[in-house]
Computed example of a mutant assay.
Amino acid sequence: MTKDMLLWDETIFRNGEVLELDYLPEYFAHRDSQMQALKFSLRPAMRGMRPVNCLVRGPPGTGKTTAVQKVFNEMKEHTENVVFAKINCQIDSTRFAVVSRIYEKLVNIKPPTSGVAFRKLFEKVLKQLVDSNKILVVALDDINYLFHEGHADEVMYSLLRAHEQYPGVKVSVIAIISDVGTSYNFDPRVGSVFLPEEINFPRYGPDEIRDIIRNRIQHAFFQNVVPDEVCERIVEYVSTTGDLRVGIDLLRRSGLNAERRASRTISIEDVEKAYDASRLIYLCRSIRSLSEHERTLLGLIAKGGDLQTGDLYKSFHELTGLGYTRFYEIIEKMNSSQFLDADFSGKGMRGRTRVIKARYAPQDILKCLE
């Protein structure tokens, strides 16, 4: 065996955990103004006052969730009178699911998944807050997913007007929105009480990306494992996608590719091979959040190319047995979620025939559906 080969118990990773997507980095640079804005908005909670609501927005992979988590963790060290609840709306995408997660955070017990009305569970949450004299800060991460089924306004309205039902309750909401080309607007009833501090997270610039990637390399790998040209290629890919998570996942996959070759260094070829999977990370995560019927519809569109609504519905109905109303609702949701385009073709009765086509490359969609 040559000296360049890795033994069974050898690895090029110093700390592979640094490259996990849910890892909370100690080094969090280039977001100082956003962090200060979050801290300023939540500071009243330290004095027993209701914090300022926030609207945190920006493209995917720009540090929104990490910033909120880091501020939450910092505040937890200085107060025991505030309950911080971060809800992943991709997973908890209904009003009941959101309140169940808050209830679990408050009492450390999961509520029953059935047989309990939303109102009754929500009243338990509010009563617990009053009895414990604690302030609740809720971060609705990827609130986009609550809009799809019409739950966003319901959740926001319930939380923001809780003090009217239970005087003395103090609740603040941080709505985290990923800008993916769709504009999300709250109902006027919600907007009149939300009145948030808007905190924008722009895409990272090339120099910022380079700095962050180099820091992850330093902590994730042993010295000299990642040559400069490999680092630069990864920076180029992240700059193209605008999503820092692509670069972090690319480092992990490239490292595994190098180990598979039993090499002590990562090559450009390792990166190129890994990129095909890493570039789809956001698309695949988004597709995994869809329901079974939504994935079925997306698969039909990817396989069928540009389809008229009638033809698509026929195939969809044969596979699922669902009626046209539900089919139409799914089309509208996936259109607003940027999965597909549903444009009027100008043909048919009054020119209202719609042509449905995927916004992503069909082969990429099918790969994520596997």
Results as ranks from 00 to 15, higher is better:
Tyr324Trp: 06
Ser267Leu: 14
Phe344Gln: 12
Ala162Pro: 07
Glu123Asp: 15
Gly150Glu: 06
Ser100Val: 07
Val82Cys: 01
Ser172Arg: 02
Pro227Ser: 06
Asp228Met: 01
Ile102Val: 15
His163Gln: 08
Val52Met: 13
Arg279His: 12
Thr353Lys: 10
Ile174Leu: 15
Glu164Leu: 13
Ala358Glu: 04
Ser114Met: 10
Tyr166Phe: 15
Ile177Pro: 00
Glu77Met: 13
Lys105Ser: 07
Ser336Gly: 12
Ala67His: 07
Lys39Tyr: 15
Glu26Ile: 06
Ala45Cys: 03
Leu7His: 10
Ile212Gln: 10
Ala162Tyr: 09
Lys347His: 04
Asp249Leu: 15
Lys105Tyr: 03
Ala97Asp: 15
Val271Ile: 04
Val238Ser: 05
Thr325Glu: 12
Ala277Glu: 14
Ser172Leu: 02
Lys64Asp: 01
Lys170Ser: 01
Arg359Gly: 02
Asp211Thr: 14
Asp207His: 10
Phe339Arg: 01
Ala277Leu: 10
Ile281Val: 15
Val125Lys: 11
Glu198Met: 09
Phe147Arg: 03
His317Ile: 00
Gln363Met: 06
Val193His: 06
Gln36Met: 13
Leu24Asp: 07
Phe28Lys: 10
Gly181Cys: 03
Glu198Phe: 00
Asn73Met: 12
His163Trp: 09
Ile174Ser: 12
Lys314Cys: 01
Thr2Pro: 03
His151Cys: 01
Ser93Leu: 00
Ala302Arg: 10
Val230Ile: 11
Glu80Pro: 01
Ser337Ile: 03
